[in-house]
Amino acid sequence: MNPVAFARYLAGLSTTKLAKELKVSKQYISRLEQGIYDKPNKTVMDWATVELNKHYSQELTPVTVENLYRSWQWQQRESTKDSRNLKPVVITKYDRVSQAARNQSDSVIYYHQIFGQWVGSYWDSVHSFCVSMCLHPSPVAEYVEGRSLTMPNKLVEVLTRLELLGEGFKTNER
């Protein structure tokens, strides 16, 4: 379980009450509990550490709690890969033909479009993909929409570690 969510559960607090207590937004707490933040807020990590230490004999540090958070994120990602039976995103000869048919140059492959199609074959939206994979939606959406032609570093890291970047797929279109 996400250590922040678990600490909040142990404290018996709603997301609203915790957010008010820590002077952060309710949305921040909700998104942190979804795992989409790469670097959690220090105040929240300190609070979670104190709360968890009230219930365990082993003394935890904020660094340990942050490491537990990251470990939980990877467990979520691996579980998602397994439960959805994800196959790597690959470039096929049909991708070249499809893009040529849309009056796009044969020599250019729009990897962000292919990635967006891959996401769409497993999820209803980019946002639901990001929540499932514990990624912040904004940079991923920018990439899928073609506003950025370089895949976000965290997305590259996640897809590489999960072995979901298949044959011929490039993370930078330029």
Results as ranks from 00 to 15, higher is better:
S79Q: 14
F129H: 09
Q76R: 14
E163K: 12
T160E: 15
T49M: 05
E78R: 12
S98M: 08
V90H: 03
T80Q: 11
L159F: 12
T43R: 05
S79G: 11
L18G: 00
V108R: 07
K39V: 15
K42P: 14
W72K: 04
H112Y: 11
V65E: 02
R70N: 11
S105I: 03
Y122A: 05
W74Q: 14
Q34I: 02
V158D: 02
Y28C: 07
P152R: 02
E51P: 11
V90G: 06
E21D: 15
S79K: 10
V131P: 02
S14R: 02
K26V: 13
T171R: 12
R31A: 08
T64S: 13
S79V: 05
I114Y: 07
Y9V: 08
V63W: 02
K154S: 13
V131A: 14
S83Y: 09
S79D: 13
P152A: 09
K23M: 03
K42G: 06
P62N: 07
S25Y: 07
Y69G: 01
G116Y: 01
V50N: 07
L164P: 06
N41A: 06
Y110I: 03
V89N: 06
L18N: 00
H136I: 04
L159S: 10
S105T: 06
K42H: 07
L86K: 06
M45N: 02
S148H: 09
Y110V: 08
R96F: 13
I91N: 06
G116P: 01
A101C: 05
L52K: 01
Y69N: 13
N103D: 14
S148P: 04
L159Q: 04
I29V: 15
R70M: 03
H127Y: 15
K39F: 12
N172S: 15
G120M: 09
K23R: 11
P139F: 07
V131D: 01
N153V: 14
V156E: 15
S125M: 13
K20V: 03
D106T: 07
E167S: 12
F115Y: 13
W123P: 01
Q75R: 10
E163M: 10
L165N: 04
C134F: 04
N103I: 09
V63H: 04
N2V: 01
N41I: 08
R96D: 08
V4L: 10
L165V: 10
S128P: 00
W74V: 11
N85Q: 14
G146I: 10
N85C: 13
Q99F: 04
T92D: 06
A11L: 05
W72N: 14
V4Q: 00
S107K: 07
G12H: 01
N153D: 15
S83R: 14
